[in-house]
Design a binder for these strands. Structure first.
Lengths: 190, 190
DNA sequence: CCATAAAGCTAAGGCTAATAGCCTTAGCCG
DNA sequence: CGGCTAAGGCTATTAGCCTTAGCTTTATGG
């Protein structure tokens, strides 16, 4: 039994490959172990909490990846340009990794790591909103609006909920337009 | 072994009670059978396809319930008033039945019944959009925008993703405002 | 060179879904 | 009224999964 050189991060890597290939339903410890070339119980040496913790780690990883994409997208931009880039980055990520995006739990239980990753993501959005003159509570409402729209479109399109023939890229432009116009016309923005 | 008076619909009823009480994760045939006062395999007499079909039936039922709420909400209203009522009805449903809403599968596999229920829901939205002068492909883009925003806000708030203290009812007003303003200013609307 | 901690393994228990085959109930028809 | 049939129960069984327990091997540092 040679060592497999595993680590918590490596286990998550294998799990993400599995999710990309088979969707979140296909995520089992048995399958991850198979990919890692290890017996199922051996995974517990790296992921103490078993399947529940693995899912948690996956959520953290995906959220971090997404936050990183968003942060990169707004570099050197502001206001409409930044918001457009941010929304495109968000939707690009979901489009390029639909199953990974779908692996984000709908109702994650509280977790410091996930909270931290989500806070970074929200921080990027808030920073853009500051450029619209939005601060304090009002910026929180605006950030929720941005997240709602982005997540809704990402989730529905990744799930194949848009069945009609109309071009999705056009829909994306319309959605982005609505959000950007909404921010320009925000009650307390300028 | 007295008869339990089950039917596919009754099994779905029990399943929905279970989901309301424990969330979608708690949905198992064993638990449903327990509630119905029946042994697990007996459920297959009413739901031939087992757990997979039960989930499908639940998705259809919830989508129908939601579509019904939306249809009622817009009766006798048009344009901004109708769209505001529709969005409020959508978000009310998700707020009153968060686990039921979360039970909607992220990536449902194609199914005639679900397609029909979803088509009715979309039909209600399209009808409201017609009042804005939106028709054809453009109304499809607008309907997707409405669904994205509603689903995103419903999904995130039901999942507890909005952790900051800001009042959710205010966020809801802001979101509705953005959508309504977006429709008023739609490229081809009036 | 050996001690020890980390990382692997097998074995076993418990839960679930699903299938197969049998029995009982309810209702209908002669 | 008797009995047939179909529907709706049941138990038993299989297969797959997660998880824990306890043993064994590997790698490493003194």
């Amino acid at each position: 039994m040679p060592r497999a050189g595993l680590s918590p991060a490596a286990v998550v890597d294998h799990a993400l490959e599995l999710i990309d290939a088979q969707g979140p339903e296909g995520l089992t410890l048995a399958a991850v172990a198979g990919r890692a070339g290890v017996a199922t119980p051996s995974l517990y040496k790296h992921v103490t909490g078993g399947l529940a913790e693995l899912r948690r780690l996956i959520a953290v990883r995906v959220t971090e990846e997404l936050a990183e994409r968003l942060a990169e997208s707004v570099l050197g931009r502001s206001r409409d340009e930044a918001m457009t880039a941010l929304l495109n980055a968000y939707l690009d990520y979901a489009e390029q990794h639909p199953r990974r995006y779908a692996a984000l739990p709908q109702a994650p239980d509280p977790d410091p790591d996930l909270t931290r990753a989500a806070a970074r993501l929200v921080g990027v959005i808030i920073a853009v909103l500051n450029g619209y003159g939005l601060t304090g509570e009002e910026s929180v409402h605006a950030a929720r609006t941005v997240r709602s729209t982005a997540h809704g479109f990402a989730s529905l399109s990744a799930g194949g909920a848009f069945r009609l023939a109309a071009d999705l890229t056009v829909t994306r432009q319309r959605v982005i337009r609505v959000v950007v116009e909404g921010l320009r016309a925000w009650p307390e923005a300028g």
